[in-house]
Amino acid sequence: MSVTVKSKRFVDEVIEETPGGHRLRDCIQCGTCGGSCPSGAEMDYTPRKMIALVNAGRREEALSANTMWSCVSCYSCTSRCPHNIPVTDIMYTLKRMAIREGRVKDNDGPALARAFTHYVDKYGRSFEMGLATRYHLLNRPFAAMKMGGMGMAMFLRGRMAFTPSKIRNIGQLQAIINKARELGGAS
């Protein structure tokens, strides 16, 4: 006798990982989110279509889309949704799932997030000059060259530092980070 273990459905995973995410089941496909989105034109699927894909269980199309990486976290969709669906937070969940499952296609979003959090974990502060080198030179050297003039103008006005600032009690922050990772099951 065999027991069939039904794997968790895609929509349930998204809901579980998004506080307030259960409301995405209430989506009426009105399109207010897509119409409000400043990046909608650049997206493979607008937020409305993305919610439909999640509800329909189409994991692969959803997670390999560029939609969430075009999201600028302006919260217009979230603010205007007539059913209070936390659309922006769902985009964050989809970003995390896409990274975890290795489904991101041709997008620098994950590298930027990785470079940014690297400096927070290491110093407790963000480090723009470090980001400029670590992220730009590794991912997009041509763009880094075009940024050069602007970087110099910023430096001359005292708006760019070559060394990071570091918090005093970095050990405490790292202990908190390690514990959170352990509790969240994240790597």
């Binding site: 964050y92 940014f116 994240a186």
Partner: peptide, 11 residues
Amino acid sequence: ATEYFSQDELT
């Protein structure tokens, strides 16, 4: 910023 939430929500 927005970057940490893209990687790991609890952390």
